[in-house]
Amino acid sequence: MSPVTAMYVAQAIHGLTYGMLLFLVASGLTLIFGMMGILNLAHASFFMLSAYFCYQVVAWTDSFWIALILAPIGTGLVGIIVERFLLRKVQKLGLGHIGDLLLTLGIALVISEAVKTIWGTESHQVLIPPSLQGLVTVAGLEYPIYRLFIIGLSLVILGALAFILFKTRLGMIIRAAVSDRDMVSALGINMPRVFMFVFGVGTLMAGVAGVAAAPMLTVFPGLADQIGLDAFVVVVVGGFGSLLGAVVVSLFLGELNSFGIQFIPRLAPVLVFLFMALVLSFKPMGFFGERDE
């Protein structure tokens, strides 16, 4: 492989890694919006919270693998509690979107302040587990094992999610609810319970991404800022509620980000937003938007 080709391939894998992490965050965000019409401003905060949980579990147990299991579960549980005891109550007040937005913005602020109070404002290092350290050589190209691990992990979760959505009754209910949740509940399905599950799984997936990102990005209070914004762009551009849109646009943004930094570093920070503005002027509902309201 020539050095130039190798650079392109490395950059592409780099973009794929971020794209996959982005998908883990954005898919929960888009499903929650699609089913309940809630734009969860706290979603990326769960990503960050899980990274802190990961740091804490590693500090206690010295095992990244235990953290990889416990931190997302803990984050998912926090998500379920938030849905069951806060979001559901606020929705009953009938304030419409403004109620959801204020509540989730409040939760984002609380999480942000809580992590500073508990873990301080400095960055915390989470070490890559020894088995995933170092480089692997494929066709003359050296690449960090850990990034490949993130891609593999995300693919496993994507597969599990696709299985649930397209092969189970629960998935059928979720897909139906994205287009018409009232009708689903009129067929005898307990939608509040289904939504609690989806909210839990959405935050759990953001949690997996948080753990995966912790060793690469270190753990600090602003950790969720970029991925939160990018996930929002993914949901808007991919189409609110569209999982396919989330996959495609996450991967595209990952590459846009990676190659943007390589070739036009000065423009890289705004490329994502240029892209969103461009798409929305032609497709206001996003690429795969199913809602027509």
Partner: peptide
């Protein structure tokens, strides 16, 4: 709209 006829019945 995004479910098959059979899934519409089964749901």
């Amino acid at each position: 709209p995004n479910l098959s006829v059979e899934d519409n019945l089964l749901i």
